[in-house]
């Protein structure tokens, strides 16, 4: 417990130290705020422009979470399908790998072509980019379930659905949550990416516009907001993970990592 607190304090000092260093170096080396604004400048911009930024924050959050939710639904469905059936696994896997190796940036223009610019391509990009890690993790978790555990249920005459529900899925939860933490971060990347290319709303668009107007501190303010939202969502899923899958880590560490 004491070690834990120590680590927290150290990690907090590292963050504070990082920004202090940034501030001090900028002043010492007289870096132009057109190249790299100081954290204090960014903070001021954040504060003064916040009313303007707020709707864009909501927009990005909306696109990310909607895309993420769709991605989870689709990812879990496909994952369960190919994780429970050896045949489906063998048949579908090459295609999935093919899809996953397409750089998602390349898909955005197509989505814009189909759905026009705006919220829809942002949601879809967020979805597409986060589906694959979820599929792979769910499928792996299910496919590696110990046959012994399944036999316990089978000898009781359990149906395939009961085996899946009582053994397969709980056993897969640690894999699922590990993938959720990756997926939520990726969804952000997808949504912002799409906003940057084709939207007039969202943090991605704000940063794009700001950079073409040389409002560099606003660009960095956007980055800050993205980082904060990313950390918040990651922390939320870590917390949920510790709650749901504490058994996998023997419940020792309920701390948010």
């Amino acid at each position: 417990m004491k070690d834990n607190v120590k680590i927290r304090i150290m990690s907090l000092s590292l963050i504070v130290g990082f920004f202090l260093m940034w501030e001090v170096l900028c002043i010492m080396l007289q870096v132009s705020d057109l190249i790299l604004p100081r954290p204090s400048e960014i903070a001021v911009t954040l504060w003064t422009r916040f009313p303007v930024l707020w709707p864009h924050i909501l927009q990005t959050l909306y696109a990310t979470l909607t895309g993420f939710a769709l991605g989870v639904i689709i990812g879990v469905s496909i994952g369960v399908l190919i994780g429970t059936s050896r045949v489906a696994y063998g048949v579908a896997y090459p295609l999935l790998v093919g899809f996953s190796s397409i750089p998602k940036v390349a898909v955005v223009p197509i989505l814009v072509l189909w759905f026009g610019s705006g919220t829809t391509p942002a949601i879809l990009t967020a979805m597409i980019i986060c589906v694959f890690p979820i599929v792979v993790n769910i499928a792996t978790g299910l496919a590696t379930t110990e046959p012994d555990l399944e036999d316990v249920l089978k000898t009781l005459g359990a149906s395939t659905r009961e085996v899946l529900w009582n053994v397969g899925l709980p056993r897969t939860m640690p894999y699922f949550f590990a993938s959720l933490k990756v997926a939520i971060t990726l969804s952000f990347v997808g949504a912002v990416l799409s906003e940057t290319v084709a939207s007039n709303r969202g943090i991605g668009n704000v940063m794009m516009t700001a950079s073409s107007n040389f409002q560099v501190s606003l660009v960095f303010a956007g980055l800050f907001i993205l980082a904060l939202m990313g950390v918040a969502l990651y922390a939320f899923f870590s917390f949920l993970e510790a709650r749901v899958t504490g058994w996998a880590t023997r419940g020792k560490d309920i701390a948010v990592t």
Binding site: D148, L149, D151, V152, L153, L156, R171, M173
Partner: peptide
């Protein structure tokens, strides 16, 4: 191998057949 499901307490593990049978 005792094959207890690691995510369930002993009580819930033992109760499992009542849920299935």
């Amino acid at each position: 191998n005792p094959t207890m499901l690691p995510w369930l307490t002993i009580e819930k593990n033992v109760m499992l057949p009542l849920k299935i049978v």
